[in-house]
């Protein structure tokens, strides 16, 4: 039983690590391309191409560079999570009506102030929905990590497939499906919470 709980926790940890790094890079990149639209198309298509690479192919290539283990898995999950975060940050900021940004500037806010106090809060529901997509996808992709020596629920699934054991496959899958649904619910709540506060102001 404790093996099972460890597997669930390791799965969550690997997924969260990959997504958190992707959020840090992705939000920064999204803000950057919203400010400098010249780079938008290039950055978005690079992220799009990365996401298009088959997961097994990407993980295997990362394994060659970073070796067997959780590190390669975290890097792979991070690369996969970039596109939804960058794209949603970018759309979230660029779809704010110009009048709002001008009002912020007119009140005497500096550009960083306008970004932190006006643009990012308004873009937050969009950004959160990007993070949700990234997290749920990463939960599923992390299973492949077992093939390059990563830990987590993939081990149960893989052993189950090799032993043709239904029980083991189900034991590995149910937590992933439940975690995905839970994460979707959690991010949706967060998103609506933000929205409610926004309309009150």
């Amino acid at each position: 039983m404790s093996d099972f709980i460890n597997a669930v926790l390791e799965h969550l940890a690997v997924t969260a690590a990959g997504v958190v790094i992707a959020v840090l890079i992705g939000v920064a990149a999204g803000i950057f391309i919203a400010r400098r639209p010249v780079f938008a198309a290039a950055v978005l298509s690079v992220a799009d191409i990365i996401q298009t690479i088959p997961s097994l192919a990407l993980m295997a290539m990362l394994m060659i560079v970073f070796g067997l283990g959780d590190l390669s898995v975290v890097i792979g999950l991070c690369l996969y999570s970039l596109l939804p975060v960058i794209r949603n940050t970018y759309t979230g900021i660029t779809t704010i009506p110009p009048s709002i940004r001008e009002a912020a500037r007119g009140m005497g806010m500096s550009r960083p102030q306008s970004l932190l106090k006006v643009e990012l809060p308004l873009a937050m529901p969009m950004i959160l929905s990007g993070i949700r997509v990234a997290f749920v996808t990463a939960l599923g992709t992390a299973v492949i990590g077992v093939l390059i020596g990563g830990g987590g629920l993939g081990n149960l699934v893989y052993r189950g497939i090799q032993a043709l054991d239904w029980g083991m496959i189900i034991e590995g899958t149910v937590p992933i499906v439940l975690l995905s649904l839970l994460a979707q619910h959690f991010f949706n709540r967060l998103q609506h919470f933000k929205r409610r506060r926004k309309t009150n102001v």
Binding site: V143, V157, W166
Partner: peptide
């Protein structure tokens, strides 16, 4: 929506079984 959260490896495992 729920089926889509099932990882690919698992679906293939089920297909195999």
């Amino acid at each position: 929506g729920v089926v889509q959260t099932i990882p690919g490896l698992v679906m293939l495992g089920i297909g195999l079984l």
